[in-house]
């Protein structure tokens, strides 16, 4: 299933950067309940996001007000494995096109 990822800032994850051994739990994506049902997974399970740049595994959270077909992820070095920058454009931090598939647990 195709998703467009939009990054946002999270102060709690940002503050974790200045703690020793603070592994920020930035591996999460917030999806609409409709997309969760379409993917056949529940909140808290793992989702694999893939595009030409790479692939990451993230936890899923439900956000009722998220429009269908979009996902929100906090800004972190992790999400930068998927971002890219085309010539003469800004990096696509707010418009990352990925393929999402549920991970067999």
């Amino acid at each position: 299933m195709k998703l467009t990822i939009v990054t946002y800032r999270d102060i709690f994850l940002w503050s974790e950067r200045y703690k020793e051994n603070g592994q920020p739990a930035a591996a999460l994506v917030r999806l609409s309940p409709k997309d969760l049902a379409d993917l056949g997974i529940a909140a808290g399970e793992k989702l694999k996001l893939t595009n030409e740049e790479g692939s990451i595994v993230v936890d899923v959270l439900a956000e009722p007000k998220c429009p269908s077909g979009y996902g929100y992820m906090p800004v972190s070095p992790l999400v930068n494995r998927l971002t890219t920058c085309r010539h003469g454009k800004l990096p696509n931090f707010k418009h990352i096109e990925v393929k999402a598939e549920a991970l067999e647990s």
């Binding site: 740049e53 790479g54 070095p77 930068n80 494995r81 971002t83 890219t84 920058c85 010539h87 990096p91």
Partner: peptide, 24 residues
């Protein structure tokens, strides 16, 4: 960086490795 134009970088108080795409 994409055109490999620079051959030495002086980075002052910035963290491009965390905030920029790994593909770049």
């Amino acid at each position: 960086v994409k055109n490999r134009a620079a051959d030495c970088l002086l980075i002052v108080g910035a963290d491009p490795f965390s905030s920029l795409p790994i593909s770049v």
